[in-house]
Amino acid sequence: MNQTIDTTTAGGSDPRPAGRAASEPRRWRLADYPSLLTVPAILLLIAAMAYPLLTIVLRSFSEPEWSLQNYVWFFSTPVNLTVLARTFSISAWVTIVCVIAAYPYAYLMTTVGPRMRLVLIMCVLVPFWVSGVVRTLAWVILLQDSGVINSTLKAIGFSSIRLIRTQTGVVIGMAQVLLPFMILPLYSVMRGIDLRLVQAARSLGARPALAFLQVYLPLSLPGVFAGAIIVFILSLGFYITPALLGGPRSTMLSTLVQSQVLSLLNWGRGGTMGVVLLVSTFVLLAVAAPLMRQRHKQASRS
Protein backbone atom coordinates (compact mmCIF):
# COMPACT_ATOMS: atom_id res chain seq x y z
CA MET A 1 0.00 0.00 0.00
CA ASN A 2 2.71 2.43 0.98
CA GLN A 3 4.65 1.71 -2.13
CA THR A 4 1.80 2.44 -4.49
CA ILE A 5 1.06 5.69 -2.76
CA ASP A 6 4.74 6.69 -2.83
CA THR A 7 5.15 5.95 -6.48
CA THR A 8 1.96 7.60 -7.55
CA THR A 9 2.68 10.77 -5.71
CA ALA A 10 6.41 10.89 -6.43
CA GLY A 11 5.74 10.10 -10.06
CA GLY A 12 9.36 10.07 -11.21
CA SER A 13 10.85 6.83 -9.92
CA ASP A 14 10.29 3.50 -11.61
CA PRO A 15 10.29 0.56 -9.25
CA ARG A 16 9.69 -2.11 -11.88
CA PRO A 17 12.37 -4.59 -12.95
CA ALA A 18 14.85 -3.33 -15.52
CA GLY A 19 13.82 -5.94 -18.13
CA ARG A 20 10.49 -4.27 -18.84
CA ALA A 21 11.61 -0.76 -18.31
CA ALA A 22 14.41 -1.19 -20.84
CA SER A 23 12.01 -1.17 -23.81
CA GLU A 24 10.67 2.26 -23.03
CA PRO A 25 11.19 4.39 -19.92
CA ARG A 26 7.70 4.80 -18.56
CA ARG A 27 6.36 7.01 -15.82
CA TRP A 28 3.82 5.82 -13.37
CA ARG A 29 0.68 7.77 -13.84
CA LEU A 30 -2.44 7.79 -11.76
CA ALA A 31 -4.47 7.70 -14.94
CA ASP A 32 -3.19 4.18 -15.66
CA TYR A 33 -4.63 2.92 -12.42
CA PRO A 34 -8.04 4.58 -12.10
CA SER A 35 -9.06 2.08 -9.43
CA LEU A 36 -6.56 3.72 -7.09
CA LEU A 37 -8.93 6.65 -6.91
CA THR A 38 -11.31 4.50 -4.93
CA VAL A 39 -8.73 3.82 -2.21
CA PRO A 40 -9.80 6.69 0.09
CA ALA A 41 -13.45 5.67 -0.16
CA ILE A 42 -12.60 2.02 0.43
CA LEU A 43 -10.42 2.83 3.43
CA LEU A 44 -13.21 4.96 4.85
CA LEU A 45 -15.75 2.19 4.28
CA ILE A 46 -13.50 -0.38 5.93
CA ALA A 47 -12.85 1.80 8.94
CA ALA A 48 -16.32 3.25 9.37
CA MET A 49 -18.50 0.45 8.05
CA ALA A 50 -16.94 -2.98 7.58
CA TYR A 51 -14.98 -3.12 10.82
CA PRO A 52 -17.81 -1.91 13.10
CA LEU A 53 -20.27 -4.18 11.30
CA LEU A 54 -17.96 -7.14 11.78
CA THR A 55 -17.66 -6.28 15.46
CA ILE A 56 -21.43 -6.12 15.80
CA VAL A 57 -21.85 -9.50 14.12
CA LEU A 58 -19.11 -11.10 16.23
CA ARG A 59 -20.43 -9.66 19.48
CA SER A 60 -23.93 -10.90 18.66
CA PHE A 61 -22.48 -14.41 18.86
CA SER A 62 -19.84 -13.91 21.53
CA GLU A 63 -21.61 -12.08 24.32
CA PRO A 64 -21.87 -13.07 27.07
CA GLU A 65 -20.35 -16.32 25.74
CA TRP A 66 -19.86 -17.97 22.33
CA SER A 67 -23.18 -19.48 21.31
CA LEU A 68 -26.46 -18.75 19.58
CA GLN A 69 -28.03 -17.59 22.86
CA ASN A 70 -28.87 -14.09 21.59
CA TYR A 71 -30.58 -15.42 18.48
CA VAL A 72 -32.50 -17.97 20.51
CA TRP A 73 -33.56 -15.13 22.80
CA PHE A 74 -34.58 -12.92 19.88
CA PHE A 75 -36.79 -15.48 18.22
CA SER A 76 -38.31 -16.79 21.44
CA THR A 77 -39.37 -13.38 22.74
CA PRO A 78 -42.75 -12.45 21.23
CA VAL A 79 -42.25 -8.69 21.52
CA ASN A 80 -39.20 -8.83 19.24
CA LEU A 81 -41.06 -10.65 16.48
CA THR A 82 -44.06 -8.36 16.73
CA VAL A 83 -41.86 -5.31 16.51
CA LEU A 84 -39.81 -6.77 13.64
CA ALA A 85 -42.97 -7.45 11.64
CA ARG A 86 -44.27 -4.00 12.51
CA THR A 87 -41.00 -2.40 11.38
CA PHE A 88 -41.39 -3.98 7.96
CA SER A 89 -45.07 -3.16 7.67
CA ILE A 90 -44.59 0.51 8.66
CA SER A 91 -41.69 0.77 6.18
CA ALA A 92 -43.86 -0.73 3.45
CA TRP A 93 -46.66 1.75 4.16
CA VAL A 94 -44.23 4.64 4.14
CA THR A 95 -42.89 3.45 0.78
CA ILE A 96 -46.38 3.19 -0.69
CA VAL A 97 -47.36 6.64 0.56
CA CYS A 98 -44.12 8.07 -0.83
CA VAL A 99 -44.68 6.52 -4.27
CA ILE A 100 -48.23 7.82 -4.44
CA ALA A 101 -47.25 11.30 -3.31
CA ALA A 102 -44.00 11.58 -5.25
CA TYR A 103 -45.04 10.20 -8.63
CA PRO A 104 -47.34 13.01 -9.75
CA TYR A 105 -45.02 15.57 -8.19
CA ALA A 106 -41.98 14.31 -10.09
CA TYR A 107 -44.05 14.14 -13.26
CA LEU A 108 -45.11 17.73 -12.80
CA MET A 109 -41.45 18.71 -12.41
CA THR A 110 -40.70 17.33 -15.88
CA THR A 111 -43.56 19.17 -17.59
CA VAL A 112 -43.34 22.71 -16.19
CA GLY A 113 -41.03 25.49 -17.31
CA PRO A 114 -37.56 25.98 -15.80
CA ARG A 115 -38.61 28.67 -13.33
CA MET A 116 -41.52 26.68 -11.96
CA ARG A 117 -39.27 23.62 -11.83
CA LEU A 118 -36.84 25.50 -9.64
CA VAL A 119 -39.68 26.38 -7.25
CA LEU A 120 -40.77 22.74 -7.16
CA ILE A 121 -37.21 21.56 -6.52
CA MET A 122 -36.82 24.09 -3.71
CA CYS A 123 -40.08 22.86 -2.17
CA VAL A 124 -38.50 19.41 -1.98
CA LEU A 125 -35.05 20.45 -0.89
CA VAL A 126 -35.70 23.15 1.69
CA PRO A 127 -37.44 20.82 4.17
CA PHE A 128 -34.71 18.31 3.37
CA TRP A 129 -32.16 20.74 4.78
CA VAL A 130 -34.10 21.19 8.00
CA SER A 131 -33.21 18.71 10.73
CA GLY A 132 -35.45 15.66 10.95
CA VAL A 133 -36.08 16.35 14.63
CA VAL A 134 -37.43 19.81 13.90
CA ARG A 135 -39.70 18.49 11.17
CA THR A 136 -40.92 15.71 13.44
CA LEU A 137 -41.73 18.19 16.19
CA ALA A 138 -43.64 20.27 13.67
CA TRP A 139 -45.69 17.17 12.95
CA VAL A 140 -46.38 16.80 16.67
CA ILE A 141 -47.93 20.26 16.66
CA LEU A 142 -49.99 19.44 13.56
CA LEU A 143 -51.14 15.96 14.51
CA GLN A 144 -51.77 16.08 18.25
CA ASP A 145 -55.31 15.90 19.65
CA SER A 146 -55.32 19.62 20.35
CA GLY A 147 -53.27 20.31 17.23
CA VAL A 148 -53.88 22.26 14.06
CA ILE A 149 -55.56 19.45 12.11
CA ASN A 150 -57.92 18.43 14.88
CA SER A 151 -58.88 21.95 15.89
CA THR A 152 -59.66 22.75 12.26
CA LEU A 153 -61.78 19.62 11.99
CA LYS A 154 -63.65 20.55 15.14
CA ALA A 155 -64.12 24.14 14.00
CA ILE A 156 -65.87 23.02 10.82
CA GLY A 157 -68.07 20.60 12.69
CA PHE A 158 -66.41 17.23 12.30
CA SER A 159 -65.37 15.04 15.18
CA SER A 160 -61.66 14.90 15.90
CA ILE A 161 -59.52 11.98 14.80
CA ARG A 162 -56.68 10.30 16.60
CA LEU A 163 -53.50 10.87 14.61
CA ILE A 164 -50.60 11.23 16.98
CA ARG A 165 -49.34 8.11 18.73
CA THR A 166 -50.90 5.94 16.04
CA GLN A 167 -49.27 4.12 13.15
CA THR A 168 -51.03 6.47 10.76
CA GLY A 169 -49.31 9.42 12.38
CA VAL A 170 -45.92 7.72 12.21
CA VAL A 171 -46.42 6.85 8.54
CA ILE A 172 -47.43 10.43 7.70
CA GLY A 173 -44.43 11.90 9.49
CA MET A 174 -41.92 9.42 8.08
CA ALA A 175 -43.29 9.77 4.55
CA GLN A 176 -42.81 13.52 4.71
CA VAL A 177 -39.26 13.19 5.97
CA LEU A 178 -38.40 10.60 3.32
CA LEU A 179 -40.27 12.10 0.38
CA PRO A 180 -37.19 13.75 -1.23
CA PHE A 181 -35.51 10.35 -1.48
CA MET A 182 -38.42 9.24 -3.64
CA ILE A 183 -38.92 12.40 -5.69
CA LEU A 184 -35.30 12.90 -6.74
CA PRO A 185 -34.64 9.44 -8.28
CA LEU A 186 -38.08 9.52 -9.89
CA TYR A 187 -37.41 12.92 -11.38
CA SER A 188 -34.02 11.94 -12.73
CA VAL A 189 -35.55 8.96 -14.53
CA MET A 190 -38.63 10.81 -15.74
CA ARG A 191 -36.52 13.63 -17.10
CA GLY A 192 -34.93 11.12 -19.52
CA ILE A 193 -38.25 9.84 -20.84
CA ASP A 194 -39.08 11.16 -24.26
CA LEU A 195 -42.59 12.59 -23.98
CA ARG A 196 -42.99 12.22 -27.74
CA LEU A 197 -43.39 8.48 -27.14
CA VAL A 198 -46.63 9.21 -25.33
CA GLN A 199 -47.70 11.50 -28.13
CA ALA A 200 -46.93 8.77 -30.63
CA ALA A 201 -49.06 6.31 -28.68
CA ARG A 202 -51.90 8.78 -28.63
CA SER A 203 -51.62 9.49 -32.35
CA LEU A 204 -51.89 5.77 -32.92
CA GLY A 205 -55.22 5.76 -31.12
CA ALA A 206 -54.42 5.03 -27.49
CA ARG A 207 -56.49 6.81 -24.91
CA PRO A 208 -54.53 9.00 -22.48
CA ALA A 209 -54.85 6.44 -19.67
CA LEU A 210 -53.70 3.59 -21.89
CA ALA A 211 -50.80 5.60 -23.29
CA PHE A 212 -49.71 6.37 -19.77
CA LEU A 213 -50.06 2.81 -18.50
CA GLN A 214 -48.40 1.13 -21.47
CA VAL A 215 -45.74 3.65 -22.40
CA TYR A 216 -44.93 6.15 -19.69
CA LEU A 217 -45.38 4.04 -16.56
CA PRO A 218 -43.08 1.17 -17.63
CA LEU A 219 -40.40 3.65 -18.62
CA SER A 220 -40.57 5.36 -15.23
CA LEU A 221 -40.51 2.14 -13.20
CA PRO A 222 -36.72 2.10 -12.70
CA GLY A 223 -37.08 5.41 -10.87
CA VAL A 224 -39.93 4.04 -8.77
CA PHE A 225 -37.86 1.01 -7.79
CA ALA A 226 -34.75 3.03 -7.03
CA GLY A 227 -36.71 5.45 -4.86
CA ALA A 228 -38.74 2.70 -3.21
CA ILE A 229 -35.64 0.77 -2.19
CA ILE A 230 -33.97 3.85 -0.70
CA VAL A 231 -37.10 4.90 1.17
CA PHE A 232 -37.83 1.38 2.39
CA ILE A 233 -34.33 0.78 3.69
CA LEU A 234 -34.08 4.18 5.36
CA SER A 235 -37.47 3.58 6.98
CA LEU A 236 -36.32 0.33 8.55
CA GLY A 237 -33.79 2.15 10.67
CA PHE A 238 -35.89 5.16 11.64
CA TYR A 239 -35.67 6.15 15.26
CA ILE A 240 -36.59 9.74 16.10
CA THR A 241 -39.85 10.02 14.15
CA PRO A 242 -41.51 6.85 15.46
CA ALA A 243 -40.26 7.70 18.94
CA LEU A 244 -41.87 11.16 18.91
CA LEU A 245 -44.96 10.56 16.78
CA GLY A 246 -45.67 6.99 17.78
CA GLY A 247 -47.09 5.25 20.78
CA PRO A 248 -46.37 1.79 22.09
CA ARG A 249 -48.12 0.23 19.11
CA SER A 250 -45.82 1.91 16.64
CA THR A 251 -42.49 1.19 18.31
CA MET A 252 -39.92 0.12 15.73
CA LEU A 253 -36.93 -2.15 16.08
CA SER A 254 -34.43 0.70 16.45
CA THR A 255 -36.08 1.67 19.74
CA LEU A 256 -35.62 -1.85 21.06
CA VAL A 257 -31.98 -1.83 19.97
CA GLN A 258 -31.52 1.46 21.76
CA SER A 259 -32.90 0.11 25.02
CA GLN A 260 -30.79 -3.06 24.80
CA VAL A 261 -27.55 -1.20 24.15
CA LEU A 262 -27.94 2.08 25.98
CA SER A 263 -29.85 1.11 29.06
CA LEU A 264 -29.09 -2.59 29.47
CA LEU A 265 -25.54 -2.52 28.04
CA ASN A 266 -26.47 -5.73 26.30
CA TRP A 267 -24.36 -5.25 23.17
CA GLY A 268 -24.83 -8.87 22.16
CA ARG A 269 -28.60 -8.64 22.03
CA GLY A 270 -28.53 -5.20 20.44
CA GLY A 271 -26.14 -6.56 17.79
CA THR A 272 -28.40 -9.54 17.23
CA MET A 273 -31.33 -7.25 16.50
CA GLY A 274 -29.20 -5.31 14.04
CA VAL A 275 -28.04 -8.47 12.30
CA VAL A 276 -31.57 -9.88 12.09
CA LEU A 277 -32.81 -6.62 10.57
CA LEU A 278 -29.91 -6.52 8.11
CA VAL A 279 -30.30 -10.14 7.02
CA SER A 280 -34.06 -9.89 6.65
CA THR A 281 -33.59 -6.77 4.54
CA PHE A 282 -31.12 -8.63 2.31
CA VAL A 283 -33.52 -11.53 1.95
CA LEU A 284 -36.35 -9.21 1.03
CA LEU A 285 -34.23 -7.40 -1.54
CA ALA A 286 -33.02 -10.68 -2.99
CA VAL A 287 -36.63 -11.76 -3.42
CA ALA A 288 -37.57 -8.45 -5.00
CA ALA A 289 -34.52 -8.13 -7.25
CA PRO A 290 -35.44 -10.57 -10.08
CA LEU A 291 -38.89 -9.03 -10.22
CA MET A 292 -37.37 -5.61 -10.80
CA ARG A 293 -34.82 -6.77 -13.30
CA GLN A 294 -37.50 -8.34 -15.46
CA ARG A 295 -39.54 -5.19 -15.43
CA HIS A 296 -36.52 -3.14 -16.30
CA LYS A 297 -36.00 -5.28 -19.40
CA GLN A 298 -39.60 -4.90 -20.33
CA ALA A 299 -39.30 -1.16 -19.95
CA SER A 300 -36.20 -0.93 -22.08
CA ARG A 301 -37.75 -3.08 -24.78
CA SER A 302 -40.81 -0.94 -25.12
Binding site: T77, P78, V79, T82, V83, P248, S250, S259, S263, L264
Partner: peptide
Protein backbone atom coordinates in the same frame (compact mmCIF):
# COMPACT_ATOMS: atom_id res chain seq x y z
CA UNK B 1 -36.13 -3.71 31.81
CA UNK B 2 -37.29 -6.52 29.59
CA UNK B 3 -40.85 -6.29 30.87
CA UNK B 4 -40.82 -2.50 30.72
CA UNK B 5 -39.52 -2.57 27.14
CA UNK B 6 -42.30 -4.97 26.18
CA UNK B 7 -44.82 -2.59 27.75
CA UNK B 8 -43.32 0.31 25.79
CA UNK B 9 -43.49 -1.72 22.57
CA UNK B 10 -47.19 -2.39 23.01
CA UNK B 11 -46.95 -6.03 24.06
Amino acid sequence: SEKWTALMAGN
